[in-house]
Design a protein around this nucleic acid. Structure first.
Lengths: 77, 77
DNA sequence: GTGTAGACTCCTGTCGACT
DNA sequence: AAGTCGACAGGAGTCTACA
């Protein structure tokens, strides 16, 4: 599987936020209505989620998309 | 084709930014390395682009993702 | 310059199972 | 709890063509 930079960063962002909430991948998946193995793939950077999925995840963290993407990792060159 | 709210808003955002730059769909597609008909579908809200595509488009407008999503349309309930 | 349709490849997203 | 695999349906993204 191909890991692009944005996928890796996105995965790190999801994992960080998930841990901040103290949730397991399973409970996050349940909240989002997504599959646990898919969350796993996202956090490992091997998945390229669609806009719908990105919104679903951000919403589950109760964040607007601009806040979700306002993170240092996304701004490195 | 299914139009979700986020797809419609995303399409409006792309169209707005494209016109602000004075570009045609064709020239935007060329800048992004995407297909013109695909840009058309995105602007009409019938496409659900992946994270990679979202980044590609934001980058073509020389915007970070958080700035791209910092738009009133995305914050309506 | 844009909208739309059809056809195509490849990947997204789901699910079960084992580690 | 999390990683990984295999299999699958449906959809993402490309391309040609016409209005």
């Amino acid at each position: 599987m191909k890991k692009t930079k944005i996928q890796i960063l996105f995965g790190q962002r999801v994992r960080l936020l998930r841990k901040l909430h103290g949730w397991s991948q399973e409970s996050l998946a349940a909240r989002c209505g997504l599959d646990r193995t898919y969350i796993s793939g996202i956090e490992r950077g091997i998945r390229n989620p669609t806009l719908e999925i990105v919104l679903t995840l951000a919403t589950s963290f109760e964040m607007e998309l601009d806040v979700f993407f306002d993170w240092d990792g996304f701004k490195e060159r």
